[in-house]
């Protein structure tokens, strides 16, 4: 169904993007080792002709055994604050917040969409805001290039190792700014309107396990 191919320009862009963005995004995670920048010599070895496979391991406020680090007591540092427009001074606080995310052997490759139409082809999905102009030729993207995401195929029955994650949000409450102290630096409302976890029943703080079959093809227009 998919005509796999090589798009050097697209694949090259992915490598550069990862090089600059990924360390930046992960650098603030407590407990994570500091990231080392790749130098040019290392990148020269990257051909990417066969695509890219990568693993991600990130921990947020937990140790290697998923035990929370310093997430006990009032105003502990394990928290996320959200403030919305026109709600200044009111912080939606996710407290006792910790978890992990591990992506195993996710593969990126360049690919072309199928040349033929599917049974569900709908040209209206590719119209501009004016409702008339096609954003792709004949309002049909068939055959266009894209980026294909896959996990290893032919996994055994009962195998769930593509993505594992653990998440604990122990308390949720609104905190308000007080004087010069922003709401995200306060823990006055110590109760909780909601608590949430994603885990596995095999052990306390075990990671949730999941698998993905098939392929996702992402393209722009």
């Amino acid at each position: 169904m998919i005509n796999a191919g090589v798009l050097k320009r697209v694949v090259g862009a992915i490598v550069v993007a990862f090089g600059c963005c990924l360390p930046y995004a992960l650098a603030d995670m407590p407990g994570a080792p500091s990231m080392q920048a790749l130098d040019e010599a290392e990148l020269e070895q990257v051909v990417a002709r066969q695509g890219i496979m990568f693993d991600i391991r990130s921990r947020n406020n937990v140790d290697a055994a998923n035990n929370p680090i310093g997430c006990v007591g009032a105003l502990n540092p394990c928290r996320v604050g959200l403030e919305f427009t026109a709600r200044a001074g009111k912080w939606l606080m996710l407290k006792d917040y910790y978890g992990t995310l591990e992506i195993e052997s996710l593969r990126l490759d360049a690919a072309f969409l199928s040349a033929g139409s599917s049974p569900y082809f709908d040209a209206s999905r590719f119209l501009a805001a004016d409702g008339v102009t096609c954003l792709v030729v004949a309002c049909n993207p068939s055959g266009a290039p894209g980026i294909m995401f896959t996990y290893p195929e032919n996994k055994g029955a009962g195998v769930y190792n593509d993505l594992t994650t653990f998440l604990n949000i122990g308390r949720v409450a609104i905190e308000f700014d007080s004087g010069l102290t922003p709401g995200y630096m306060r823990d006055v409302n110590t109760g909780s309107v909601l608590a949430f976890r994603a885990s596995d029943a095999s052990a306390p703080n075990a990671s949730m396990q999941m698998r993905f079959d098939g392929r996702a093809i992402v393209y722009g227009f």
């Binding site: 769930y160 608590a195 596995d200 095999s202 949730m208 999941m210 996702a216």
Partner: peptide, 21 residues
């Protein structure tokens, strides 16, 4: 951004859960 999912399946292990505490 368009996302096509073909021959797709997503399964969480039957012992893994989301929990509202």
């Amino acid at each position: 951004i368009a996302m096509a999912f073909e021959d797709f399946r997503w399964m969480v292990k039957p012992t893994s859960y989301f929990e509202q505490v």
